[in-house]
Design a binder for these strands. Structure first.
Lengths: 150, 150
DNA sequence: TGTAATCTCTCTAGTCACTAGAGGTTCAAG
DNA sequence: CTTGAACCTCTAGTGACTAGAGAGATTACA
């Protein structure tokens, strides 16, 4: 089995430039090359990229994935940190859902309060955004998290 | 009322470099300057920045905010587009919640399936990520959206 | 064997919404 | 008048890619 980077891309659903990017970030080892310097992949790389893909779909950062891969490469180590990474991610996702729900109700109130047929001067959307006091509930003051939903 | 950029930052909760960034992006007009070239703000800028802050908290992109501001500056126009922007944003938030909920249950299954006291070779977290077939439900294949939850 | 189409190579730069830092100037309090 | 905080501009970095240029490799078919 010798796959070109394009074959690998089709099989995993990861785009070609993204595969090269992962290699540059150290998530994939530099593969064999053809006589003409093109990348050639085997089953191991296919599986590893599938792993990365799946973890990315679940919102893990590349940093977290690198840690998980490190662990995969050392099967004798305790899997405590893998569990912690997954639990951290779960916590981050739950927090994000919580915040998005607050935004949802606030936005629904704003969007549905306006029929859209008036002039901008009377627009409830604009008024709501201009005056925080119209909020029925407070939405959060910016906090940092790195989970992406894409 | 003449506020320095630092005063404005304290009053709105927007950081100083972010205020300058908004100015560079055209969301805030270039303000008056002191004799020594420092920015001086009045009530109008305070309100506008509050508007931007509120909209950002609700996840609107700077592009969307620019469109809303444009509308604010022309109160005679119909507010149709403001309503559409808000509804688009609401739709994006709902979609994001939907996807995050799928991730949540998948992650909960993975994270709770592992006690964390075994070796990496037997880790359920790693196995789940390596083998997509273990998924009880499918989580989405990467789709594009620009709403950020921060 | 020739050739054309497609793929692949490296490299740089752009995206979004900031954030950090360097190196210098201005302001307000004491 | 001095000190120290706040301000100025500018550049570069973040994460996770994405886009494009310009050149070389591979493959299918005649």
């Amino acid at each position: 089995m010798f796959l070109s980077i394009g074959d690998l891309a089709v099989r995993t659903g990861v785009k070609v430039p993204t595969i090269r990017y992962y290699e540059s970030r150290g998530l994939l080892a530099a593969p064999l090359r053809s006589a003409g310097n093109q990348r050639r992949y085997g089953r191991a790389e296919l599986e590893r990229l599938g792993f990365i893909r799946h973890a990315r779909d679940l919102g893990f950062s590349l940093e977290a994935i690198a840690a998980l891969i490190e662990l995969q490469d050392h099967p004798d180590r305790a899997c405590t940190s893998a569990t912690r990474i997954a639990q951290d991610q779960l916590g981050a996702v739950r927090e994000k859902i919580r915040r998005l729900r607050a935004l949802e109700s606030e936005l629904a109130r704003i969007a549905e309060g306006c029929t859209g047929d008036g002039a901008a001067r009377d627009c409830y959307v604009l008024a709501s955004l201009a005056d925080h006091d119209l909020c029925t509930q407070d939405h959060p003051i910016e906090a940092k998290s790195s989970t992406q939903v894409s």
